[in-house]
Design a protein around this nucleic acid. Structure first.
Lengths: 131, 131
DNA sequence: CTAAAACTGTAGGGTTACCCTACAATTTTC
DNA sequence: GAAAATTGTAGGGTAACCCTACAGTTTTAG
């Protein structure tokens, strides 16, 4: 399929997809169109894009996502290795969730309209103090 | 305190802090130093920076964080209003956590080395299909 | 069958949230 | 009184795109 169809399917932009390709996250076969060359993507691209989307929801950089893809979609790697790697990624998600739980706790603290003393003590607790 | 102390306390960079100030997330009083002018921050800056840090952990843009700060640290606003606003932010965190739970679920799916058919069905389920 | 519409490509500028020099003016320290 | 540390400004670079704009190509409509 050409890039336009990928745009329709994924909702991503033409620019974004070409940027992914520049970074090596997806690949295409060049097809001739007169003096021009179009990009033809095969259907495995969709799996790659699905994993890229997961990486973005984890707020990974595209370079890091590229590294993940190389390990997650790779014939050179054993199934066990691949499985272990993806489980490790899932654990990272747990870490991120734990971090957000802490963020929530702190927001609730600030919501309780604490007075200056209490706020200062809290700031000290999270490492923000001076003198 | 001058910017150097803020750097020590927060671990943020001089450039980063000045960028925050350019965006109006923190403020300073100018103090004269010969022909130069230094920035003097008061201690309320630390509370602002604590909230900024929470916003960053929620992956908010700095402009959005600025909007949050205007509502969270604002004498013009009633305590109830402020409280309600921060509780709404906490709910947003819940939404983000739910999203990450879904990410985890999908990672575990891919970890189970599914064959092409199953993967295709999954892609379809999450909205990635063509033809 | 041709003219317009739709689709591709490249190129260049803009944005966000910084980092990283480099250099000048100012303290502070020895 | 000189060196070291601290501030300031200025300019360039990065990441992950978006947004024109323009030029070939292919498809569609009349």
């Amino acid at each position: 399929m050409l890039i336009g169809e990928l745009v329709k399917i994924t909702g991503l932009s033409k620019d974004g997809l070409r940027y992914y390709e520049d970074l090596g996250l997806i690949h295409s076969k060049p097809v001739k169109a007169g003096t021009r060359i179009y990009r033809d993507y095969d259907d495995t691209t969709l799996e790659r894009l699905a994993l890229i989307a997961l990486g973005k929801r984890m707020h990974f950089s595209l370079r890091d996502i590229g590294a993940v893809l190389n390990r997650a979609i790779n014939d050179q790697i054993s199934r066990e290795e691949r499985r272990a790697f993806l489980l490790a990624q899932a654990q990272q998600v747990d870490t991120q969730i734990a971090d957000l739980e802490d963020v929530k706790k702190q927001l609730l603290f600030f919501a309780d309209q604490p007075d200056k003393e209490v706020v200062d003590a809290h700031l000290k607790e999270i490492g923000l103090y001076y003198e």
